[in-house]
Structures are given as structure tokens and as C-alpha cells.
Simulated scan of single mutants.
Amino acid sequence: MATIKLHAFVMSAPAQRVFATLYEKDLPFELIPVDIRSGENKKQPYLSLNPFGQIPALEDGDLKLFESRAITRYLSHAYADRGTQLIFEDSKKMAVMASWVEAEAHQFDPAALKLAWELVFKPMFGQQTDHAAVEEIEAKLENVLEIYEARLAESKYLGGDSFSLADLHHCPLIQYLMGSPAKRLFESRPRVSAWCADILDRPAWLKVVALKTSH
């Protein structure tokens, strides 16, 4: 098997989705750091891998991919015989899982990312948090988490009874928000809280946390 190359910045939430998938699938890979501080991602040769200049990009042999969720899907399908099964063979189960994958991308991520920016990254960069914005964003995220709480009364994980991409894709932003005042939004909902504890304690995700710490 040719060495998989992942061009990434380790603090990037989208990159962390891919790291987690690679670890879940037990796939060896080469990390090629991209210095976003100097704008390396907005220049060639990186733009030949991701024309939008965003993180991450993956090379697997002659295949070049960008967009983290497309990459995780590819790895899950192409290496279905390795590591954790992150997708389902049954078409109905796959369709249900796909619905929750889309929910993460279009319902959870927009609010969670904005909240992480205000509560985690702005303070990190010495910027002032917009508390009015935080209040508005939290209300949107709470609506999503209420739906998650109801869903998790029906199955152990969002996509079904086993861990899948629908859960994995949430890990990066949940990890960041759990280190912020927004932690209470998750912990105040028993099923969501238990689900978060479960997915953030997976060995593959703990490897991602260790990778971040080492950089």
C-alpha cells in the first residue's frame, strides 16, 4: 500500500476529522505540516492539492482529495476491511447514518464552529469575545443538541447502534467546546453528555489529542 500523505495543520478541526479516521482505520500515513500562519495554504504547490486553499488535503497514490468529510468517506469505503467499520453495508442503515452526517455538517457545525471561534480561538489570539454573539449562537446550538438528546434516546450513537462517521465528525469541535464555558450545553443533557464522553474517550481520538499536544 502506498503511503497516504495528509497535508494539514494539526489544530484544524477538519484535519482532526481525518486524523481520527486514519487512526480508527489503523492506516499508516505521513503528516505533511502546512504553515497556515505564513499563508502556505494559499500558495502553490498546496493549491494544486486543494484549489480553495483550505485544510486538509490528502494524497493516496495518484488520488488527490480535499474537503475533510469527503476524505473520511473515501477512507471508510476504500479501506473497509481495515480497523473500525465507520460505515454500514446495509443500504437503509447507511441512509440513516448519512442523514446524521449531513446534520453534523449543516446543523451542528455552523453553530459549533462560530461558538468555538468566540470562546476558544478569539481568547487564544488575544481578541475580545463578542458575548452578544455567543448568546445567539448558543441558542442555535441548544436547539440542535435537543434534537440530539431525543435521537440518542433511540440509539446509542447518532448514526445507529455502532460508532460511525456521524459521530466521529463531531469530535474536534466538541473537544474544543468542552474546554470552554459552552461545556454546560453538553453536560446538561444526560444522553448527549454520555455520548460525548464515549466518543472523546476512543483510543483513536485520544491519539489525535496527543498529536495536537505534541505540536
Rank of each mutant, 00 (worst) to 15 (best):
D130V: 04
F108H: 03
A197G: 11
A105L: 10
Q107L: 11
S76I: 05
A111E: 07
G61K: 05
K183T: 08
M94S: 15
H106E: 10
L6E: 00
K114E: 11
I36D: 11
V144A: 02
E149S: 06
L211Q: 01
K212R: 10
A139R: 12
A15G: 10
L165N: 08
S155Q: 04
L31V: 07
I71C: 10
Q16R: 09
Y79M: 02
D81F: 04
P181N: 11
H7R: 11
V96A: 15
H170K: 04
D198V: 08
K114Q: 13
G53N: 02
F121T: 07
K42E: 12
R37G: 15
G39F: 04
K42D: 12
T3N: 15
F121C: 00
I71H: 05
H106P: 01
F186V: 00
D201N: 14
K64M: 13
T84M: 15
I174M: 10
T21H: 01
K212N: 06
S38H: 07
P14L: 06
D198W: 01
S48F: 12
K140M: 10
I137N: 05
Q175W: 14
P14Y: 03
A80W: 14
A112H: 05
Q127H: 06
V208G: 00
A194D: 02
D90Q: 14
L75V: 11
H169G: 06
K42H: 14
A133H: 05
E149R: 01
V101T: 09
V144K: 00
K156S: 12
A112F: 02
C171P: 12
E135L: 09
I87Q: 13
C171A: 12
P14A: 09
K64P: 08
F66N: 12
W117A: 13
L141P: 02
A132W: 01
K156L: 13
S214M: 01
L206H: 00
Q127C: 06
E136S: 15
R82T: 10
G160L: 01
H131Y: 11
